[in-house]
């Protein structure tokens, strides 16, 4: 059994996600994501449960400008660490196999898939998630443009789309409709909001320049 222990981090409170949201409400969960969890993460070495595996790795990284230290099971992906240890649930788990783009975050300023990134391999690096885009209540131009253009329907892929789109403009791949289509192809939208996503990107790119 030891070799088949859960490879995703346990929730920081030992609560199921459903129980957590059910008890506290989505609004509280949203504000908690901004403050409390990073402190919890610093206490992780002492609280690491036995079933995590015996070879924990000390990892120090900067998430949305804040220093985070934790002892990570080598199997934890950055996605699971963000969501389950740091309660930064804006980053979504879609396919968990590197095929859908919902988990897109920035590492050292580049867009990557957090589901295929091991937490242990980003030691010392800077991570930005969708929670780190806005300046307090002041949304990033790309976030505002997605709202203005209805760049989503169910919203599940949206944070990945926005993270990808912000990077896209920085890469210089947002100049033409064809470029936007090609360089956003790693972000799948099952609702088919693509035309509105493209409009949002064209709108935001002007403001980002």
């Amino acid at each position: 059994m030891a070799s088949r222990s859960p490879s995703t981090p346990p929730h920081r409170d030992g609560l199921s996600r459903r129980g957590f949201i059910g008890r506290t409400g989505a609004v509280v969960a949203g504000t908690a994501a901004a403050s409390a969890p990073l402190d919890t993460a610093r206490a992780a070495p002492q609280s690491a449960p036995a079933q995590q595996g015996e070879n924990l790795v000390a990892v120090a990284l900067t998430v949305n400008g804040r220093s985070v230290r934790l002892m990570a099971d080598p199997r934890w992906t950055l996605l699971d660490t963000l969501r389950e240890r740091l309660s930064l649930t804006g980053t979504k788990k879609g396919c968990d196999r590197g095929q859908c783009g919902a988990c897109t975050v920035h590492v050292e300023g580049r867009r990557v898939l957090s589901c295929l990134t091991l937490t242990a391999s980003v030691d010392g690096e800077h991570v930005t998630t969708v929670e780190g885009l806005s300046d307090g209540e002041h949304l990033h131009p790309m976030q505002r443009a997605f709202i203005a253009h209805d760049g989503f329907q169910c919203g599940y892929c949206t944070s990945g789309q926005i993270m990808s789109a912000v990077a896209l403009v920085g890469e210089g791949h947002a100049d033409t409709d064809d470029d936007i289509k090609e360089y956003m192809s790693g972000n799948i939208c099952r609702c088919g909001a693509y035309p509105f996503i493209r409009d949002a990107i064209k709108d935001a790119r002007e403001e980002m320049r």
């Binding site: 590197g98 990557v112 990134t117 990077a167 890469e171 790693g186 972000n187």
Partner: peptide, 9 residues
Amino acid sequence: SASQQLRNM
């Protein structure tokens, strides 16, 4: 090949 995210990795 792949997507820009995967190519960055």
